[in-house]
Write a protein that binds this DNA or RNA. Structure first.
Lengths: 177, 177
DNA sequence: TATGTCATGTAACTGGTTACATGATTGC
DNA sequence: GCAATCATGTAACCAGTTACATGACATA
């Protein structure tokens, strides 16, 4: 599965929930998938155009007050299922924080500690937003809610892992010298 | 800090440990930083050439049995310090697994379970390699060892988080229907 | 002498972001 | 009238991978 197809998956997936404009799609991806996915306009509009050409989405007549609503077609839905079923190709890792810490001797423990403090703050903030999202999902009457919860849970476990790692990391740094 | 600079950081960082050929540098990055970083030849050689031109690394005379050893210069070391100190620009997230699970309703619980089983296996394998790496580092007489340990610990916490998330995810899926 | 590894490099391509251009509508 | 938001799109650029070309040396 080409990486190009990943954007297709996100777009078709979004439209499978409900039809919307390209602009709204981008907003939905940012708000709802923002913790684990990202698309820019420069990807979304060309992808929508290509999907339309291939008959996987349909563009509704633009209304007076808004743009064209894009809707997924039945072949589009089939394509979405195929994309979901395709094996995941692992992407090469690139963790800028760990790259810095690996060569952290030049930064001295103090420099490393400030890097760690940053991710602690971020993880703490993330946990709050996950908690809010989880509460929403648990009261939602949506057949997708359980699946969405899987992604929220992933974020929570990951953020808690970050916090417990940070504790260990600070302990390791404290022992230097 | 441009993303271009990230490769520079990895290259200068590698050469700050010891001088080596481009080929060896790539091998070192793959073996040692492989859990959190990646560089391809297509990045490394042009970067080395650019760094040489800028006087940040020096190319030794190629021996008979090997290629040129690249060594970091003192200005290169200064540049490495600057790169390490530069603020980290967060990269937009793209987690293919979570993207699929979010739209997992089309895959049904069974399809989701097999995706989860895959990451469980991977995390379990990773934990083994981290344990080996940790054991090595704890007996190493290297001033960098403690910093390297930070990155191993990050991998361990992350892999354990994956496993505990997988348990929760399977429990959530079991409750569907 | 054939195979594998060490070694260096480039060209083509893909994926993706950023910045810009454009214009309608909404609310102050 | 002005600013913000909604909306669509494109062009230029950057990062990064992949595939290829080349050749030396080691060893079975």
């Amino acid at each position: 599965m080409s990486r190009r197809a990943q954007t297709e998956l996100a777009v078709l997936g979004g439209l499978s929930i409900e039809p919307m404009t390209g602009y709204a799609l981008r907003a939905a991806i940012t708000e709802t998938l923002g913790h684990f996915w990202h698309e820019s306009f420069g990807q979304i509009y060309p992808t929508l155009a290509a999907l339309e050409k291939a008959g996987l989405v349909e563009r509704g007549e633009p209304g007076l007050t808004s743009g064209s609503q894009f809707a997924i077609t039945s072949t589009g839905r089939q394509r979405l299922y195929d994309l979901l079923s395709a094996p995941i190709e692992p992407t090469p890792p690139r963790n800028a924080l760990l790259l810095r810490l690996f060569f952290g001797r030049l930064l001295e423990p103090a420099g490393c500690r400030s890097l760690i403090a940053e991710v602690q703050q971020r993880a703490t903030r993330d946990l709050e937003s996950y908690a809010a999202f989880r509460a929403e999902l648990e009261h939602a009457d949506d057949p997708n809610a359980a699946y969405m919860l899987l992604t929220v849970a992933a974020g929570e476990h990951s953020a808690r892992a970050t916090l417990s790692w940070a504790d260990e990391a600070l302990a390791i740094l404290a022992k230097i010298n």
